[in-house]
Design a protein around this nucleic acid. Structure first.
Lengths: 213, 213
DNA sequence: GTTGCGATGTATCGGTCCGATACATCGCGT
DNA sequence: ACGCGATGTATCGGACCGATACATCGCAAC
């Protein structure tokens, strides 16, 4: 999962670890808390060893500054390689069971703009199926085992059931939109910017902000 | 977390691993998928080594059956010890940061019937605070960084924001109920069985069903 | 002017939990 | 007699987390 997320983000622009973590938190804030450094840095090294990413030397603007003795380690900027892009495409397209759990689905969904429509549909439907199963499980417990459970546990189940029903409805809408080839924005959610023929443009902002080194 | 859940369940009745997993799935179905055996069995041994639980020999009904040679391993039933109950009480009362994340909160909530009111209130408010923070983060992203993100990512944030707002309202209701000393059942959720002076009875069904061994 | 502090930044370690896998028994239908 | 799905215990490698350590930079307060 982390691997997929990193590859996806680096495809938008080169970044160093710290920045990667922040962007990840912004993109996946709805799904999960910020990624831990204890996972991030080892994974970066693993990806580098596999050849999916490389170090990009930072700010080669003027070559006059002599590196001198104090070797100035500091931030390490990574960028994705051609093999990395292939790997990303492969990870996005193939869907295992983990693609449909909370985190897996969230990460895949966050990169739907780089996913072809058939795959999007497949993932949305797989997720719906999984949530429907969870929903049925909760209904069963509430219907058949209610007397065995205390009021708090029951309230928890009810809240969970409600969340499931809500998510299924959300997915239904997304699936309907997907089938009719429209943009993902649900009707009535504001920010509807009208027509768009081509879904799937690598999102805007491929250029990058500068920071004084 | 697993430790707390196991201790809590064994307090209701002795069980073996398989059963524990099923009960856990029923009780926490709204929160998370079934626990893995890869965590369950090692944890059981850890708890046993610490003295919180012990093996309870199964079905001592008739002592006539000679164990004979084939030593009949089979299921291992565990029961909680006095020290285990103390440990449980301690874990329930003390709230670290992990008490307020999704899983942690779910487990604590599932055992609210064994938790005193002050602690319940503290946990509900801590959870609310945490969700409010997540909500503010999502609002920030939607307000300030919307143009940097593609339509799918935005839709994800919107859905997450909605879930946050909903959970905050749910928590508000629970907190209000808690303060007024009522049972947890929200008004309008059916199953309101009227007055109850004493919250905190060890829930019904302390006796146990029999299965032919 | 220096001192301290919060943000930026990289890195490791131990621990928790998961997913796959293996294997043995039991009840039951065919 | 056979198989097959549910029951049941167990281990292993790997993913990810939380705490911790440490170094630099900008800047505000004294």
């Amino acid at each position: 999962m982390l691997e997929l997320a990193i590859l996806g983000l680096l495809q938008e622009s080169p970044m160093h670890g710290y920045e990667l973590r922040k962007e990840l938190a912004a993109k996946l804030g709805a799904i999960r808390a910020a990624i831990s450094y204890g996972s991030l840095y080892p994974t970066l090294r693993r990806l580098q060893a596999a050849g999916w990413i490389t170090e990009a030397d930072e700010a080669p603007a003027t070559a006059e500054e002599v590196p001198a003795l104090t070797s100035r380690r500091g931030r390490v900027v990574y960028k994705i390689t051609a093999e990395g892009k292939e790997r990303f495409a492969q990870l996005i397209a193939q869907a295992g069971p983990e693609t449909y759990d909370d985190t897996g689905f969230g990460v895949h969904f966050a990169f739907f703009a780089r996913t072809d429509q058939a795959t999007r549909l497949r993932i949305l439907e797989g997720r719906r199926r999984k949530i429907e199963e969870r929903r049925e499980g909760l209904r069963d417990v509430l219907a058949r085992a209610a007397e065995r459970l205390d009021a708090y546990t029951l309230e928890l189940q009810r809240h969970g059931l409600d969340a499931c029903e809500r998510e299924v409805r959300w997915l239904e809408e997304l699936i309907a939109n997907e089938r009719s080839g429209r943009a993902p924005t649900a009707p009535g959610s504001g920010t509807a910017d009208g027509r768009r023929e081509d879904t799937n443009p690598p999102p805007p902002g491929e250029s990058r902000k500068e920071e004084r080194p």
